[in-house]
Amino acid sequence: MRLAGKRAVVTGGRQGIGRAIVEAFLSEGAAVLTCGRGAAADDLPHGARWIRADVSDPADAARLIAAAGAPDILVNNAGVQIEKTVTDSTDADWEQVIGTNCRGVFNCCRAAIPVMPRGGSIINIGSISGHVADPSMALYNASKAFVHGLTRSIAVDHGPKLRCNAICPGWIETGMLEAGLALASDPARARQDALARHPVRRFGRPQDVAALAVWLASDEAGFATGQLFTLDGGLTAASPLQPGLS
């Protein structure tokens, strides 16, 4: 029980990576509060608390953190993606992606940092897309680079009281991955091609990300701060040009 007695807030815990983190934190003994823009899912993991909150709204973010008391752990997982280039993106797209992925992380951190106890850990979900560009994901890519920059800033400004790190997942088996593959002209072939480009020959699972989140939240990671930890099955260790696959 590596998180026994800890209080955690995980934004966007309804599905995908966020849900896996909620489940992993619960199984490690933490009290977990999670949130989303709608009502709680019927199958919310047993023991987790849910409140309706839109993290892009500062008042909602403040309400979320207040509901958690003084959380030891904050995981900023809530995020949206829109598959568009800059020229295709509308003002509404900007509001949605930047509002949730950038302002939402900022809102939650600003509300939580003053009340988090010494030794607290903030974990932001960044992305490999904050380092290298996914095609037709302009605002999403930029929003994740923002998360990376904010992560380092919080580590530098609020250490040694708090640690702050980002996890940068690659391709994780979630609804967001399926949405990306569905854009391909031949989704089945695109999946095979994408798998062949991963040195470990599989996509990540939400549980893989949750395992790293547990480690970063735990006291085992006491010297880890200000870092962007990529978890991508080796995808970005390899050149984008693979002549065998072309």
Binding site: T151, R152, A155, V156, G159, R163, P199, V200, R202, G204, R205, D208, A211, L212, V214, W215, E220, F223, A224, T225, G226, Q227, F229, T230, L231, D232, G233, G234, L235, T236, A237, A238
Partner: peptide
């Protein structure tokens, strides 16, 4: 220990900086 364990089964090809935030600034 974490990298050696099954928990890290999707972690590969990465450089894991552990420096107390020194190079974040």
């Amino acid at each position: 220990t974490w990298l050696a364990s099954d928990e890290a089964r999707y972690a590969s090809g990465q450089l894991w900086v552990l420096d107390g935030g020194l190079t974040a600034q």
